[in-house]
């Protein structure tokens, strides 16, 4: 039976892991390769690095970090943030990423999804969607959540799938940083709409939140950052909690 995945996410700026609230007030929390290995030892099913460097220099630093991580990490590594073309994706894959997530570039130039899927296989192509509620629907934001678009998040997820996305990394901007739990209605809507796996992200404050999103929505994976980075919970504790409640985990 396919198990549900727990994915620690490392926001990386200039090669260092940071954590902020609603995309601002960033604090440094550690070295990405060591953190990734520690999470693997705890039972993490996958690791995500999101590069939030503002400069080209910072992004180059990330590729070195990916290389040294890939040499000692034996669970899948997804790299995202600042990917602007198929060539950027190739660079990240060659540096050691197993999957690459695209966000802004996919909104601006959706055909990049198909190009990447064709060359690298669709299982490598993750489309990251930052969504914010407006009334009864959700709009897609780009540029690290700074720019609103007119795209409907649910429709965009379906389109990304049709273009060749292998997975959707869905972040609720309303929930992100609040620690009040995942955005269940948003996650459920997207997971119903698409047939590819959906990773829920944003809002995780405790193990119960992970249980809720994995048992009440069609999400296949839950991503979390601060609960792991600050040592509030280990991945193993989360998995024990889920297992006791009948959620299949490794």
């Amino acid at each position: 039976m396919l198990t549900k995945r727990i994915i620690p996410c490392l926001d990386v700026r200039d090669g260092v892991t940071v954590k902020g609230v609603n995309f601002v007030n960033l604090q440094e929390v550690g070295e990405p390769p060591a953190m990734a290995s520690a999470y693997e030892a705890q039972g993490a099913d996958e690791i995500v690095f999101l590069d939030i460097s503002a400069s080209a220099e910072g992004r180059k630093t990330l590729m070195h970090v990916v290389e040294s991580t890939a040499e000692r990490l034996f669970v899948p590594l997804t790299v995202g943030g600042g990917i602007r073309s198929k060539e950027d994706m190739r660079t990240a894959l060659n540096a050691g990423a197993d999957k690459v997530s695209v966000n802004t570039v996919a909104v601006q130039r959706p055909e990049v999804i198909s190009e990447c899927a064709q060359d690298f296989g669709r299982q490598c192509v993750v489309v990251a969607i930052d969504a914010k509620r407006e009334g009864s629907s959700w709009k897609v934001y780009t540029h690290g959540g700074r720019r609103r678009t007119d795209k409907d998040a649910i429709e965009w997820a379906a389109m990304a799938q049709d273009l060749g996305a292998g997975e959707i990394l869905l972040t609720s901007m309303d929930a992100d940083g609040t620690k009040d739990g995942y955005d269940l209605p948003l996650t459920e809507k997207v997971a119903e709409e698409v047939d590819i796996p959906v990773i829920a992200s944003g809002g995780c404050g405790n193990a119960q939140h992970i249980y809720e999103v994995l048992s009440r929505t069609g999400a296949e994976a839950a991503l979390a950052a601060s609960i792991f980075h600050y040592g509030e919970l280990t991945v193993k504790q989360v998995k024990d909690y889920l297992r006791e409640r009948g959620v299949p985990v490794r």
């Binding site: 039976m1 396919l2 198990t3 549900k4 995945r5 099913d45 669970v75 899948p76 197993d98 999957k99 669709r122 299982q123 292998g166 997975e167 047939d195 590819i196 796996p197 296949e220 994976a221 490794r250």
Partner: peptide
């Protein structure tokens, strides 16, 4: 219902190649 098959799933075999594997979960994509 969901494709790709992505994540950790178990493998059943009698072959010795899985000898000593405690938990037969492997990553698929």
């Amino acid at each position: 219902e969901r494709v790709p098959h992505m994540g950790w799933n178990s493998v059943r075999t009698d072959d010795l190649i899985l000898r000593g594997v405690g938990s037969p979960y492997f990553y698929f994509a």
